Simulated assay, not measured.
Amino acid sequence: MLQTVVLASAVLSFAAGMGATAQDVAGKFYRVVDGKVDARTYNGFRRYHAGCDRCHGPDGVGSTFAPSLVSRLPDIESFRRAVLSGRADGGSVMKGFAGDPNFAPYVDDIYAYLQARADGSLGRGRPGRLQP
């Protein structure tokens, strides 16, 4: 038992030293404290609302022609693939954004924002920003 605790402590210390948080280790791409978000999540909010909300609705809740990303967020690999390569499901088609410099480099940031929304850690509207 003591070895497990020591090992877990060492892993978290190493991850923290590499710029990761305990949430990153646990599969979370975001950090929310008292309704305020880290820089990655805030950037994801901005990027999402610069283009994705036109189809997927405000704050990721969906629309009449694009699904909610809050109620059924895919895993990160599926999300990256859909955003970068596009997706066709029946009558619904989304173009890929691999060549778009406003979205392609920020897919993980957008995912962080949507993951925080999907987990219920972040409400609707513009989040506050955590100070570095």
Rank of each mutant, 00 (worst) to 15 (best):
D59I: 12
G62R: 00
Y106Q: 03
G123Y: 13
P67Y: 03
G123K: 12
Y111A: 00
D100V: 14
D53H: 11
G125D: 11
V37W: 02
D109V: 05
S78F: 04
C55Q: 08
R124M: 07
A88N: 15
F29W: 11
A116W: 01
L69A: 04
I110N: 03
A22H: 09
A15L: 12
R80S: 10
A10S: 14
A116D: 03
D89K: 15
G128F: 05
G120N: 08
G19M: 09
V5F: 10
V107H: 02
R46C: 00
H49P: 07
P105Q: 12
G51H: 02
L130W: 02
L84N: 03
T64P: 07
D59W: 13
R72G: 13
P132I: 07
L7G: 08
H56I: 09
A88D: 13
S68E: 10
G35P: 06
A15P: 01
G99V: 05
A39D: 13
P127Q: 10
S92F: 12
G120H: 07
G90V: 08
D108V: 00
A20K: 14
D119P: 01
S121K: 10
D89A: 15
A50W: 12
H56C: 09
L122A: 08
C52T: 07
L12G: 09
T41I: 05
V61W: 03
A98E: 08
P58V: 11
G17D: 14
E77F: 07
S71L: 11
S71K: 15
L122S: 03
R124I: 00
F79C: 09
T4S: 14
I76Q: 09
N43A: 14
A8L: 13
T4F: 09
M18D: 14
D59S: 13
G51L: 01
R47W: 08
R129K: 14
Q131I: 08
Q115V: 04
R72L: 04
G86F: 13
R72Y: 06
P101C: 04
D108K: 10
R80I: 07
F45N: 12
A39M: 01
M18R: 15
Q115E: 06
G60Y: 00
T41M: 07
G51P: 02
Q23N: 15
P127K: 12
A98Y: 05
S9E: 09
H49D: 15
A26E: 11
R124V: 01
D100T: 08
N102I: 03
A66W: 03
S92R: 14
Y111M: 09
D38C: 04
F14A: 12
V61C: 00
A26C: 05
Q3T: 09
S92D: 07
D108T: 04
P105S: 12
A8T: 09
Y106P: 01
R117C: 06
A112W: 03
F65M: 14
G123L: 12
L7H: 00
P58G: 09
L130N: 02
P67T: 05
P67A: 06
V6R: 15
Y113I: 06
G91V: 06
L114G: 06
S9Q: 10
G19W: 05
R126V: 11
L122N: 03
D75L: 07
G51W: 02
H49K: 11
I76P: 01
D34I: 06
A16E: 13
A88Y: 00
A66M: 11
Y111P: 02
D53V: 14
L69S: 05
V32K: 06
F65K: 11
A112I: 10
D100P: 00
D38S: 04
P101S: 13
A104N: 04
